[in-house]
């Protein structure tokens, strides 16, 4: 189970690291090499985003990665094949992140069965609130996969409890309003919000949106279990190529 992996890993490491890549960006070979570099640098789990033409919750960096991947011909089937190769080659949990239409068009049951088949452990679908996700949640439960929902600073305590009940593995807490890839102020308010998240769920907490430096890591330590780095790794690759990934990830974790 995803949750027990996170708990046992946490016994050795105070703050785990989850990274995010867009499959097929800039191409599928580079996706594979990025995963390899990240795993070698000590990443604990990874989100693999299947590109979608209308990524409503994503900011400019990931939006561009989605559309460039699609323009380069990234088909869903190819993403699934690469994901299978990745899970077979590397020994950390991998999750899918994508939008609901990718599942819906494929057939939700068939898509979830395929996820289980290729060794994906869970998924984050940012445009699928639990109220709309009955088929998805049932299929995920049947295959013992983790549906991960999102807490936001706007979520009421009551809403957090509902989301927690519908999730397994961990909860993804977004640090602020807005889309991915913009700056976040790591402040006392954020500390209070994370405490509210803690009280609402017994699942581990991942914190994402705007995390990009070792200082951010220091702030998050002890307040959450997992730090999520998304857009920043894409920026790092755009600036310095795949070779820049490993030093960046090591630097985040304090050179460990």
């Amino acid at each position: 189970m995803l949750e027990s992996y996170i708990r046992s890993r946490r016994e050795q490491k105070e703050l785990l690291l989850m990274t995010h890549i867009v499959l097929g960006y800039p191409n599928f070979d580079d996706s594979l090499r990025m995963v390899e570099a990240m795993v070698e640098a000590g990443v604990d789990l990874m989100e693999l985003q299947i590109p979608f033409s209308e990524p409503m919750a994503d900011g400019p960096v990931i939006l561009k990665a989605n559309s460039d991947a699609l323009a380069a011909g990234a088909r869903v089937e190819k993403s699934l094949q690469i994901a299978e190769k990745i899970t077979a080659s590397f020994d950390i949990p991998f999750l899918f992140m994508t939008y609901y239409n990718i599942l819906f068009r494929n057939g939700v049951d068939a898509f979830v069965a395929r996820m289980a088949d290729i060794g994906i452990r869970g998924s984050i679908i940012p445009d699928l609130p639990p109220e709309e996700g009955g088929d998805y949640l049932a299929a995920m439960a049947r295959h013992d996969l983790a549906p991960i929902h999102i807490f936001t600073p706007n979520s009421t305590d009551e809403r957090m409890k509902l989301l927690s009940d519908k999730s397994s593995g961990f909860i993804y807490t977004v640090a602020r309003k807005g889309v991915t890839g913009k700056d976040t102020a790591f402040s006392d308010d954020l500390g209070d919000y994370l405490e509210r998240c803690r009280n609402a769920t017994s699942l581990p907490l991942a914190l994402g949106f705007g995390v990009k430096s070792n200082e951010d890591f220091e702030f998050i330590r002890a307040k959450a279990d997992i730090a999520v780095v998304g857009s920043e790794t894409i920026r790092v690759v755009e600036r310095g190529g795949v070779a820049a990934v490993k030093p960046f990830i090591r630097g985040l974790q304090g050179g460990a």
Binding site: P126, D127, L128, P129, E132, I150, T152
Partner: peptide
């Protein structure tokens, strides 16, 4: 089918 942040 809305992102969680817009629920309220």
């Amino acid at each position: 089918f809305i992102p969680e942040i817009l629920v309220p």
